[in-house]
Amino acid sequence: MYDTKHVQKRAQQRGITKDMINFTLDHGVIQGDRWFLNRKLLNETIHELEAQLKVAKRLRDKGGVVVVADGEALLTTYDFDSRKMAY
C-alpha cells in the first residue's frame, strides 16, 4: 500500500500501525470505497486462524510431511524425524 504523509500522520495520531492496516487489507471487507473490519469480523478471523494454527501444531507434533501430487486427491504422509534424518 502506498501511504502519503497525511496517512502516516493520521495513523500515528490514532495509534494505527502498518501491520494493522495490512491485516485489514488481508481480512477485511470492502464497504463502498473503504475497507471494513469490525469486532464480529475480527472474531471470525481469529477463529479461522486458531483452527489453522491447531492443524499446523498437530502436523508438527506428528512430525509428518504431507505430499499432495498435482492437485489430485492423492494424499501421502510420512513420519519423518529430521533429527535422525530418517523416515
Rank of each mutant, 00 (worst) to 15 (best):
T4L: 15
Q52R: 08
D70F: 07
D3T: 04
D19C: 10
A69T: 09
G64F: 00
K84I: 07
V65N: 09
N22F: 08
L42S: 02
T24G: 07
N22K: 15
L41R: 12
F80T: 06
K5C: 09
R60Y: 10
S82W: 04
D81W: 08
K18P: 10
F36Q: 13
L37P: 00
I30D: 03
W35A: 05
E44W: 09
D70M: 04
A69M: 06
T24L: 15
M1F: 08
D33K: 00
A51M: 11
Q12I: 15
R10P: 02
F80G: 03
G28A: 02
Y78S: 09
K62S: 01
I30P: 11
V55S: 06
I16W: 10
G15K: 02
R60P: 01
Q12V: 05
I46R: 15
A86W: 05
E48Y: 08
T76F: 09
M1S: 12
V66S: 13
Q52P: 02
L41P: 00
I16C: 04
G71E: 07
A69S: 09
D70T: 15
F23A: 13
F80S: 02
R14H: 06
M85T: 01
T76V: 13
L53N: 12
Q31M: 03
G28V: 05
A73H: 06
R39T: 08
L59I: 02
L74K: 15
V29P: 00
F36Y: 15
N38C: 10
L74S: 05
E48N: 15
I16E: 14
K57E: 11
V55K: 11
L75P: 00
V68G: 04
Q12L: 12
Q8L: 10
D26K: 10
K54A: 01
V66N: 04
K9Q: 12
G32V: 03
M20D: 05
K54S: 02
N38W: 10
K5H: 02
Y78H: 13
T24I: 15
T77E: 13
K9N: 05
Q52G: 12
R60I: 14
R14G: 00
N22G: 04
R39L: 15
Y2P: 00
D61F: 09
E72M: 15
V65Y: 06
T77G: 01
E44M: 14
T17A: 09
D70P: 01
K84L: 13
V65A: 05
V55R: 02
R14E: 10
E50W: 06
L59S: 02
T77Y: 04
E72T: 14
